[in-house]
């Protein structure tokens, strides 16, 4: 349970971090909160010659509201996300997802950038980022770029990030108007990764119809998933006429590779997933209607 030896670098600026990562190539890995990387090093599931600690780079922390969006620095801890009144107001789903992530000791260290870059298919923030069409900002020796969340998650623990690229921030759109937001998940114990879970954001138009909605799924594929087909079938429908369980079942219909393991078969996960979507839908609808 001891990591293999590595050299440690603690840059104090992003430019320095980019240069170090470029210099050491694929033998190097960036370290953020360490809540996923250090266990992998301890178990020797991962071995790197160089770790580049992002924890001493002030530019990576903090959040900024810019009109219709809010930007969170990649190094913002789960605890800071969860306790921010600004986040709670701008992107309620992020706040509400936070208590589901591990335990408070994990949230004190883990970062939103780390959770998204780690890209666990059962993780909460990646599912929220995908469903809400977050934009992921990165930097590498080739400069900066912005990756839409829809293009970011390419497989289990794999992303569109190049080996020499650092995630610097995540920008979420702010949903206004009569909207509702809910997350539901089933885990074997509080704080465990979910067996299956769902996030729902929905917005009503002036006539009480679903103006738009976004359904994120976690633990139900090799990546976080978005139930776009189910969203399309309910958009434009009067909220009172939507059958929540039907939305849940429609959301499961698109899934291609539902995982099966000792915590549940693929069939079981689909049933749980449908129930989680239905519950989240009802709560989000309730909130949109009655605040």
């Amino acid at each position: 349970m001891k990591p293999a030896p590595f050299a440690y670098h603690a840059p104090s600026s992003l430019d320095e971090a980019v240069a170090l990562l470029a210099e050491h190539g694929d033998g190097a890995k960036v370290l953020a909160g360490g809540q996923s990387l250090v266990p992998m090093l301890a178990l020797r599931l991962a071995v790197f010659d160089h770790l580049i600690d992002l924890g001493r780079i002030p530019e990576l922390r903090g959040l900024e509201r810019r009109g219709g969006t809010i930007r969170l620095g990649a190094g913002t801890t789960h605890a800071a996300v969860g306790s921010s009144a600004e986040v709670a107001e701008a992107v309620p789903l992020l706040s509400r997802a936070t208590p589901f992530i591990g335990h408070f000791q994990i949230r004190n260290r883990g970062t939103i950038g780390g959770a998204i870059a780690h890209a666990d298919p059962a993780a909460e923030y990646p599912a929220v980022a995908l469903a809400l069409e977050a934009e992921l900002e990165t930097v590498s020796p080739r400069g900066q770029r912005t990756i839409p969340a829809a293009d970011f998650f390419t497989g289990t623990w794999t992303t569109a990030l190049a080996d020499d690229e650092i995630l610097t921030g995540v920008t979420f759109p702010v949903w206004g108007g009569r909207s509702g937001h809910a997350i539901e998940e089933l885990a074997r114990r509080h704080g465990d990764f979910a067996v299956a879970g769902a996030t729902v954001a929905l917005e009503l138009d002036d006539d009480g119809r679903v103006g738009r909605c976004a359904i994120g799924l976690l633990g139900l594929g090799s990546t976080p998933e978005r139930a776009t087909a189910a969203e399309a079938t309910v958009t434009g429908t009067a909220i009172a006429d939507v059958d929540a369980q039907g939305v849940g079942e429609a959301a499961m219909a698109v899934l291609r590779s539902v995982p099966a393991d000792l915590h549940g078969s693929a069939d079981y996960r689909r049933r749980v997933g449908a129930a989680m979507v239905a519950r989240a839908w009802r709560r989000a609808a309730q909130e949109a209607l009655h605040g």
């Binding site: 370290l31 809540q35 250090v38 266990p39 301890a42 178990l43 994990i106 004190n108 260290r109």
Partner: peptide, 24 residues
Amino acid sequence: CEHGVCGACTVLLDGAAVRACLVL
């Protein structure tokens, strides 16, 4: 456990409870 699961190693780091086996 030495990989972040059990909590036996919890300490306060600048006042925040953390798992000392997951901090270098």
